[in-house]
Design a binder for these strands. Structure first.
Lengths: 243, 243
DNA sequence: CGTCGGGTTGATAACTTTCAAATTTCGTGG
DNA sequence: CCACGAAATTTGAAAGTTATCAACCCGACG
């Protein structure tokens, strides 16, 4: 694999210019590859001493299961994301991570990551920046669950996901491929699968967004952004740095 | 002030045994004190190069304002909490932090914190542990907003807050003083103020919890825990380590 | 060809918000 | 210490949003 084009490299590269040395160190982290398939947990709640992973390919979800069997998806993980950066340091994992497509991931042991950080502090900064950005997205997710109605929430969520994918070259301005089922979407957005379906229809009929056959199309990006009250800075802040 | 009894010291002390050196370094971080009063933001969305704060006294909230003027509270900050640990490192703040009581906080500049970490790695571990624990609580908050109904969500939230306060010696097993208004509570729980009022009445009439006159009483702790599906490990995991 | 998971739709029920108004609490100045 | 006004709490009624239940459709796959 060419480390220059890995999703993580693209993402970090949008934040800082990576030197050859940075790239070398980054490549070291990708030594151990592992494949996961849907139905097999990558990380299970309660497990100890998990390694972290860098998602190279495929999508995963992190979630919690409630007493009544429903689940709440906390975050969607896409290529270039770090998984379990926190649980690397701290006791048992408090949530599950499960692939929803076939997933290729690099296994990162705690020691290797710290070594890498020692060898290039700039890489450490970039990784922490990425982690912080992901955390900001969890916060935005929380805000949506608390204060946006179903349609705004759905629109906002799909826009944000697009912004995130664009960072790693997996989305275009007018849409992206999205392997999420409506059921998964409903578990992420705190809605019933039935209602998500109605919301998607509404957004489609109003000509703003089409979610169909594993593809999201922004049919009227500007109107969608206005409708969802989406902060385009998520896109603008980062895109220009790529140059 | 006696650093031994500061809320932060209590909290970190529940995780690791702090040496005299650790305590010295911790005391250094408390040099610059600052007072905030309700109505004046401690951190404002969009500001750059914020310092971080250690909350010594009083309560604060971090929140985002939406287009329609409603707000979603992301987290409640109580004594012993670090504020803005992330925004210390990364660009502009993406949320507001505002005191809801008179607040005393120590100002922590990025450099001072890194110095402290260099001088005692164990302190760094403890601080990161605390940060990670707070993050886990934000995730639990998100899960509640997505998948718990109003009553469960309220009960769970107040139990969690209690667990958190207990760590810093501000709660007993059967309750705690709580300066949150019902309106603030509603903004945290994604409900209307009217509905929160009804939910609190329900919990009170069922003999599980009383929220009144700035005080939360767990009238039937076990039943409340069962009702909210609260993970008591939040309490048990930490309390024994104090010994 | 039959089954199965995902998607779609209508009808009804449950939960939560909004609106309006009364009541209580609390800080402040007299 | 009391009076006053502002803010917080409380309650009822009506409206709005979302969930649940029940079918039905459809394409993938053995």
């Amino acid at each position: 694999m060419n480390i220059q084009n890995s999703p993580l490299t693209r993402k970090l590269g949008s934040y800082v210019v990576l030197s050859d040395n940075d790239l070398d160190v980054l490549a070291q982290l990708h030594k151990r590859r592992r494949i996961f398939v849907p139905g097999v947990d990558m990380i299970h709640e309660g497990q100890k001493n998990q390694p972290a992973y860098i998602l190279a390919n495929g999508w995963a979800i992190s979630f919690k299961i409630l007493r009544d069997g429903t689940r709440q998806i906390v975050d969607i993980q896409v290529p270039g994301d770090f998984l379990g950066l926190r649980s690397l340091l701290f006791r048992t994992s408090d949530h599950n991570i499960e692939p929803i497509t076939r997933v290729e991931a690099s296994v990162v042991q705690a020691g290797d990551l710290f070594d890498a950080f020692t060898r290039t502090p700039r890489l450490a900064t970039a990784v922490l920046w990425a982690a912080s950005r992901d955390e900001a997205m969890v916060v935005e997710h929380l805000v949506g669950l608390g204060r946006r109605d179903a349609a705004e929430r759905t629109a906002h969520f799909l826009l944000e996901l697009g912004a995130r994918l664009k960072l790693v070259g997996l989305a275009k301005l007018d849409g992206y491929d999205c392997p999420l089922s409506q059921h998964v979407l409903s578990d992420a957005l705190g809605l019933s699968a039935v209602h998500i379906n109605r919301v998607l229809r509404q957004l489609r009929e109003e000509g703003m967004l089409t979610f169909r056959n594993g593809h999201v199309s922004f049919d009227d990006f500007d109107r969608l952004v206005a409708f969802a009250d989406f902060d385009v800075a998520y896109l603008d802040d980062y895109a220009p740095m790529l140059k």
